[in-house]
Nucleic acid binder design. Structure first.
Lengths: 366, 366
DNA sequence: CTGAAAGCGCTTACAG
DNA sequence: CTGAAAGCGCTTACAG
């Protein structure tokens, strides 16, 4: 911790006291002069308790600060639901993950379900560990942005009643509900848009090739290029870019290529990569010369100069679809596995409509 | 749900089967031919079990897909900890909240503690409800960005051993650990910076006046103005701005004021308000004429034109400080209540260094 | 080193 | 309408 930026003040009063034992059904029953079963009835608002007893029990519970113990009650209860779901995201702090989280949190709150959220940071080992602890905690359901290459470990859990929904990427070696977006079509549309402006030297800047969505976006790009008979120049392809800095470096290198090789347009296939591109273009004063289309929308994309043309996805809608699938399963739906695909859409703002300057780039389309 | 943007496909295989009963200690014991106590010992890695029994039990547990039931074990266990903490944020999807979340999640993951995260949306009623359900779930600790005006309801819980840390805003009617930032000083610094550029008609655009931090930032602004003997013009003060749109409208109105009244500079006291300001200034082509300093940093603040000068806070550091306080309490620290204040800092990027155009605005400082 | 009994706080399934 | 007994899946506190 940066000590110099922190000030610590100690309060004058004494701190938290040594814990007091919590009151139980038994304590309340003793004070109210009834059996624990009667207290249980009152606490659970079961009908058919004499109103004077309801009154006495309520009063005793209040006096003793009684709080029912959910763990104990769900232990004996028939369904044994914990009314808890687990959320395994890439990073709770990134805008995509946190919008998905919000959508699921909204649906869960309506149903009195609590949400355990975690960040996996694209670490397959953590995926397994986190899933295991979530299962030990007896979550009723799991929403997962998978990062490992095999989700088969969840099969026996699903057979034991665990509801599982995958988001953003499909599971491997497992049949389960999944919510995806049109990665391939969206990426193709992005590349087609740049081709239509007359670009032929379109660089591809992608995330880890092991991520399914990164792979699909790559395929969409390749499809568009092939259709227009434009050869993909390997010198203009950079993958495995994990963060802004890596993206910035890669683009700086591309811009330094000889004029007949350097890209006239960039397709950045992910949020952070796009932002890295903005920094690199700005630093080389190339933002009005080199075209840019990014995958994923982001705050202020319309306020930079030029505005950033993107293939936008709607993470809240993705999260909402996931929560609908999840809660349907929790409500007893035993129907076949569903796959929901949420549409992306091209948002035109300026950066993607820059035309190539050199004469050699007349569109070969049509 | 926007049906037209969704495609639903049904899988060919059949869906999740009807749940199978989970294996218990008892089942494993029966299969291994030992007592449940021995299984318990093996599962908890207690020493002193004959290795051949360890082997038999491990095998049986594996065959039956045994998963210990945390709820049951913590029920009888002495400490009775659930290794779960609750996080009550403004909105899990906003960048400030989600950075705090991430910091606490990182600290919790290290300790095998799970995090229940929720959004309160500045609703005091929800604060009470969510706190209650978190308590029923027997969380060991609670990290709260409070929204209500009275947190006294937590006193008896704290006496019963609940660890509570407040973040961003102090609790009311309750003595508890708190992490704050230098709202007053940061806002004063922002206003002083604008005054130093020669501005005197500095508009204040603030969040809900009921939020403690909004009030402190207002006080910092007033302090700076008073020190320079600049009268605060009520026509230039807009509070209770909740979102980008409200901010945009308010600023549009300010820009339409007569030239001798209209502000030459804006102090926006919160993230979304600042972004609303950017939109409004841009729409009126005033971004190079009207100065702007915002409270809270945000992504791309350096990439818009001009770059946005802000008073930055470090939400990850705030979250980290909160988790340190929380886990110290959970580790048995009974010392006096602590208050940690994290420093803000002015980040100069251009928008705050625009000087007033009119001759009447020569600084009266010194 | 191993296990039978009691108990954690609650609900279920009965009996009165 | 009310309550005594058994049991949820596990750990504690003992005894052997």
């Amino acid at each position: 911790m940066a000590e110099d930026s922190l000030t610590t003040l100690s309060g004058t009063r004494t701190g938290p006291a040594r814990p007091r034992r919590r009151a139980t059904l038994h304590d309340v029953a003793a004070l109210a002069g009834v059996s624990i079963k009667t207290v249980s009835r009152v606490v659970n608002r079961e009908p058919g308790v004499r109103s004077d007893l309801v009154h006495r029990v309520t009063e005793a519970a209040e006096r003793l600060d009684y709080r029912p113990n959910m763990a104990a009650s769900s232990l004996r209860r028939a369904e044994g639901k914990t009314k808890t779901v687990g959320l395994m995201l890439e990073d709770v702090a990134n805008p995509y993950s946190s919008s998905v989280h919000r959508a699921i949190g909204d649906a869960a709150a309506q149903r009195g379900v609590a949400v355990l959220a975690t960040s996996l940071d694209e670490d397959p080992v953590r995926e397994g560990e986190v899933a295991r602890t979530m299962i030990l905690r007896r979550v009723d359901g799991l929403v997962i942005v998978p990062t490992g290459s095999d989700q088969g470990y969840l099969r026996s859990e699903m057979e034991a009643g665990l509801a599982v929904v995958f988001v953003d990427r499909p599971p491997n070696f497992l049949d389960a509900d999944t919510v995806l977006v049109t990665n391939r079509d969206g990426a193709r549309e992005a590349a087609e848009h740049l081709l239509a402006q007359g670009h032929r030297r379109i660089a591809f800047l992608g995330d880890l090739a092991t991520i399914a969505t990164a792979q699909e976006r790559w395929e969409g790009y390749v499809t568009a290029m092939r259709r227009d008979r434009v050869v993909v120049d390997e010198r203009l392809v950079r993958r495995d870019l994990r963060d802004q800095e890596a993206s910035e470096r890669a683009i700086t290198e591309l811009l330094a290529l000889p004029a007949d090789v350097a890209p006239t347009a960039l397709f950045t296939s992910q949020n952070l990569v796009t932002i890295g591109a903005l920094h690199a273009l700005r630093r080389h004063a190339a933002q009005h010369r080199v075209a840019l289309v990014g995958f994923d929308d982001f705050e202020l994309a319309d306020l930079v100069e030029p505005g950033v043309t993107v293939v936008a996805q709607d993470p809240y809608a993705v999260g909402r679809a996931a929560s609908e699938l999840l809660f349907a399963r929790l409500d007893g739906d035993h129907g076949p596995t569903q796959r929901i695909v949420v549409q992306t859409r091209l948002v035109v703002r300026g950066s993607g409509e820059i035309r190539p300057a050199s004469p050699g780039s007349i569109p070969s389309r049509g």
